[in-house]
Amino acid sequence: MRLRNAVIWLFAFGAMVLAGAASSSRWEHVPSKDHARANPLTGQNEAIEAGRTIYRDHCLQCHKVDGRGDGRKKPSLRSARVSGASDGDIEWFLRQGDLAHGMPSWSNLPEAQRWQLVAYLRSIQ
């Protein structure tokens, strides 16, 4: 009986660890300096509109018009994971990409355009 309980607790703990890792692993790698960065364009409607144009040019082909992804490999951008991230997290992720999982690095975009894109992504949450 004690052994069975121990196994159940072990599985439950493992499931919680995996669930936690799946939901937060993306941002755990963000350096604290980047995590703390605020979007210098926050609250500017022009930045959101310009971000919409950048989204259309670079992101729409995978993440689709409404940012909901394709339901398969290209994830939705209207998610708790994105809305719960800081501006700095998102800018860092755009800069880094996730090459192993198909997301290109956007370090080639000027920094101001990455912040405009962050402003737009915030607006569609």
Binding site: E111, A112, Q113
Partner: peptide
């Protein structure tokens, strides 16, 4: 180097960016 960092609000052909 891009001639301008920020993107324009409207579609444009000859914008510096």
């Amino acid at each position: 180097h891009s001639l301008r960092g920020k993107a324009s609000v409207k579609d444009c052909t000859f914008c510096a960016e």
